[in-house]
Design a protein around this nucleic acid. Structure first.
Length: 113
DNA sequence: TGCCTGACAAATA
DNA sequence: GTATTTGCCAGGC
């Protein structure tokens, strides 16, 4: 079986990396799928520390479906632009047209046996 | 070792 | 629908 990284940070990055284009996840959801229930804030910190251009961090939103970063910020601007580029609609920091990536579990943990 | 902060979540008004 | 408060856990100093 595939053994996921032991480092919590790596696991979170792994989950975020498997989010399909046009789909989004919440910090709490990402943490839970990474095997770290209740570590939503840790996921946020990890994303804030990350510097990987290939990491679709912009697909990670708050439980309210809102952009986590403050409107007007550089990160906020980038996130909105990227989401729109994927066919989604962003209004007032809110994301529309996107649905929770429920099938990410299989993408992360491999084939569903 | 102890205190403060944080790209959060859920509940309440 | 938004604004506030409380709780949870890890990381940094």
């Amino acid at each position: 079986m595939k053994k996921p990284p032991v480092d919590p940070r790596e696991r979170i990055l792994q989950v975020v990396r498997r989010i399909p284009r046009g789909q989004v996840l919440g910090y709490g959801e990402v943490a839970r799928r990474a095997g770290l229930p209740g570590r939503a804030r840790l996921a946020a910190k990890v994303l804030s520390e990350n510097n990987d251009p290939d990491l679709p961090w912009h697909r990670v939103l708050r439980s309210d479906g809102r952009i986590a970063l403050p409107a007007g910020s550089s990160g906020f601007n980038t996130q909105v632009e990227r989401l729109r580029a994927e066919g989604l609609t962003v209004t007032a920091g809110r994301v529309r047209g996107a649905k929770p990536a429920a099938d990410v579990d299989e993408l992360v943990w491999g084939p569903p046996r």
